[in-house]
Amino acid sequence: MTAANWVTRVVSALLALALLIGSLLAVVEIVAAALGRAPALIPYPEWTSWLRTHSWNDWIVNAVLGGLVVLGLLFLVLAFRRGKPASLALRSRSGGVDVTASRRSVEKSLATAAARTTGIAGASASVSRRTARVDARTVARSEPGIREEVESAVRGRLDSLGLERRMRTRVDLTMKDTR
């Protein structure tokens, strides 16, 4: 599961809990009022009088309405944002069998492929839906054309995976700090 899905899952759980507790509390208050009892947990008479004494154009009412709009937009962003994929689809060979490769393992695999290139001291990779980005650290005096070699190694690894969608590659080289 991706980090985006975890955030959505936690927010959903908290929201569900809040709705559950809130609606049950409201039921308790309505039943208590029907039995002629005083407010049990929610000071609703105060809330009612506050709503009666504040008009729609009061700044505090506008602030609450603004909060509702922001909260609504946040929920929509959570519902629609895609984030990085948890896995990448590979080309299908047989019917009824979907083959995928987990994004994290593809990143690890690309970093390993890049790090094996001569003159590269280490590498890290990050993969989004369309782009594979590799950050490689070269040794102090790297050979010319090393970028092409790293790119070729990364492309070779991507080709061997057989991804359904062709991916752009981007290689950034930095010189390893030798101090």
Binding site: V97, A101, T112, L161
Partner: peptide
Amino acid sequence: PVTIELRPG
């Protein structure tokens, strides 16, 4: 239906 998730490397 089967889904295979490969984790290379």
